[in-house]
Simulated assay, not measured.
Amino acid sequence: MKKNSKIYVAGHRGLVGSAIYRKLEEEGYSNVITRNSKELDLREKHEVEQFFAEEEVDYVFLAAAKVGGIVANNEYPADFIRDNLLIQTNVIDAAYQNDVKKLMFLGSTCIYPKHAEQPLNEKALLTGELEPTNEPYAIAKIAGVKMCESYNRQYGTNFIPVMPTNLYGIGDNFDLEKSHVLPALMRKFHEAKENNEGSVEVWGSGTPLREFLYSDDLADGCLFLMEHYNDSEIINIGVGKDISIKEAALLMKEVVGFEGDLNFDTSKPDGTPRKLVDTTKINDLGWSAKTDLKEGLEKTYRWFLENHEKAIGGRK
């Protein structure tokens, strides 16, 4: 990409898209365009086609998606599969129709089978059953991967599918019904501290293992891959090491400064027992994550405190 290339970041208000947008600005890209959902509904085919035809975009970061944690995935499965299929189908096809030079499709490591061998290698895709709690979302993302692969094979496009591990960071979603585990814990600990409560409830047993990637590290990795990766095969972006939910909760407790107890509610689902990605492929290309979990949580909590009303209001 040249510094004046026209770059469209789809989903620039979300955790992933906002981090990519910040990174592009920091690196001096001067022609980055965005649209919010009121300006451009990516679920509407004619709106997407008109946008691409008018804007003549060179590069696309497709970070727009309907996302959420276990609660949201359980309660709104139809919304998750429908909206994500519509968004990615419309954008990928319009990118092809309007000769976009390169598109990055941001997926999720939930595309891998629930009981796949750890760490999750890219070749594990479609080798087993998915985790039931987020299966509709995962199937939509798998369809996006296969769409990129198919367009590349049939039309000679350069659409790359990238699978980030669990993310957290500045601009995260702190809605307790829809957020992922780290922002949910951050808000719970913060509010318990403010209200002088004696304990905080943590969903599940605390034993599942998770890998957490700071969103600004993801953005750095995405920009690296846009410059150095040209392949239809999926590629993981992760840290390469994991931590138990209990350990993550204890670390969050320390970062926030909460002094009470943790209560693990084992009646709530644990989700996948372990989810660690194999980062060999991206590491061999010359990229690795730089921010350790405690440092990333401290940066995120500072942002949370400085933007508290915006954070707890959720992302619009």
Rank of each mutant, 00 (worst) to 15 (best):
E177R: 04
T127D: 02
A95S: 15
I81K: 08
E135K: 14
K114Y: 03
I111P: 03
Q88S: 13
L182G: 03
G128Y: 08
I81E: 03
E129N: 14
L130Q: 09
R153D: 09
L126H: 12
G128F: 05
L86C: 05
A124G: 01
K114L: 09
D79G: 01
T165I: 10
A124W: 12
T133F: 10
Q97W: 06
T165R: 02
D175F: 02
T165F: 00
T127K: 15
F159P: 00
N84D: 13
D172V: 09
G144H: 06
N98I: 10
M163F: 15
V145T: 10
A138N: 11
V162M: 08
N166G: 13
P161T: 09
K101W: 04
D99N: 15
K114T: 04
T165C: 14
L85M: 14
K141E: 11
Y155L: 11
Y76K: 13
I142G: 09
G171Q: 06
Y168C: 01
G107L: 02
L120H: 10
Q97T: 04
G128K: 07
L130E: 05
P183N: 09
K102I: 04
Q118D: 07
I87A: 05
R187D: 08
I160Y: 05
N152T: 07
R82V: 10
P132K: 11
Y155A: 07
D93V: 08
L120F: 11
P119H: 05
H180Y: 11
E129P: 02
N134I: 00
A124C: 14
R82M: 06
Q154A: 09
P183L: 12
A78N: 14
L86T: 02
D83P: 03
E129S: 14
H115S: 08
T89Q: 05
N166E: 07
A124E: 15
Q154F: 08
V162R: 09
T133W: 06
R82Y: 07
G156R: 13
H190G: 00
A124S: 15
R187K: 15
N121I: 00
K188V: 02
P161C: 11
I139S: 01
V100E: 07
S179H: 06
L85F: 06
N158W: 04
M163Q: 15
N158C: 15
S179Q: 04
K146I: 03
A94D: 07
N166R: 12
I142M: 13
L85Q: 07
R153P: 00
C110R: 00
L130H: 11
L130Y: 09
T127N: 04
P183H: 12
H115C: 02
N84P: 05
A143T: 11
N158G: 04
T109S: 08
G156H: 13
N173Y: 08
H190Q: 12
I139R: 15
S150I: 01
N121H: 10
Y155C: 09
T133N: 07
L176R: 09
V181I: 15
K102D: 04
D83K: 00
Q97G: 00
E131H: 06
